[in-house]
Amino acid sequence: MRLLAMVARRCLWMPPTLFGLLLIVFTVSHVIPSDPARVMAGENASASQVAAIRHQYGLDLPLPVQFLRYVKDVATGDMGKSLFTQRPVAEDLLARLPATMELALFAMSLAIAIGVPLGVVAALRRNSWLDHLVRVVTVAGLAMAAFWLAILLQLLFSMWMGLTPVRGRINGWGPDPITGFFTLDAVLLGDWETLGQALRHLILPTLTLALPAVATIVRFTRAGMINVMSSNFVFYQTAMGIPRRRIVWKYLLRAALIGTLTQIGLIFGNLIAGAVVVETVFDWPGLGTFAVNSILHSDYNAVMSFTVFTGVIFILTNLMVDIAQTMLDPRGR
């Protein structure tokens, strides 16, 4: 019951947060520039074009009115049209969401699958060669620019060794969309050829995105483990002769993972943010390439909508992380 109350309380906080986010984006797009219509029209637009845009987007109205209109539009799922393609931005973003989510989820799963055991083992064998190696990898992983790592991996594995595709998400069109996740759709359709291809395309982007996530997860898992290892309950179970493996992988790990879990929301945010640059390198047709293309075309509205859209995803992720955390830690209930 208390879990439900917590979820309800968090959900109640979402509208004000979203409202605040819209206010920031609106300020950035409508208040900071002295003439937003000129920015939207682009550098080479004529005065009449600028005037047309000003009128078309209601930029001649008072700012509070503009803001309320903006909030109303976004609330009804209308994010306006792209200034470049003239297509509704919300549709484009939704169409590209599965590609980015598939990539982010693969990277997240990989990062957890590698990071958690590595963190546990590093904590159990403190100051061993493995622990030192893990530390070096962690420090490097957090210091590497994602786009650079992407280029490096592409150079090495795709261009020089020819092991993986250089770019894209699939050759050709991809499976008929059911979920929009190519791997999942291929499995659902029983199309193993497509599945293999989709996976091959996923390897490098996933690796790139996963590395900093692995670094964060290892760090927090290791720190969490070391923190709980000296707890009285660990001593009690040891003194009562419960097998070490059992203590470590059942009782210690759960306690250690709570600290790691607080980071999962942040890590997911980083994955989405990292996707912006990594997708560009691999021509991955997701939200990131959409954002970058919009930047290149000075497609102002698209960039702002992308910001709001990412914010929504991020807020939802954090909500889910909070719920998971409450379920794992009975003290917070």
Binding site: N232, I242, D329
Partner: peptide, 27 residues
């Protein structure tokens, strides 16, 4: 053998602080 047969079996333990001897995350 000590871990399996002696500790917690033939010789058991009552800790000083019953507050922290339980893992807070499990029933």
């Amino acid at each position: 053998e000590a871990a399996d047969q002696i500790r917690g079996r033939a010789i058991t333990f009552v800790p000083q602080d019953p507050f922290s001897a339980f893992n807070p995350l499990f029933t």
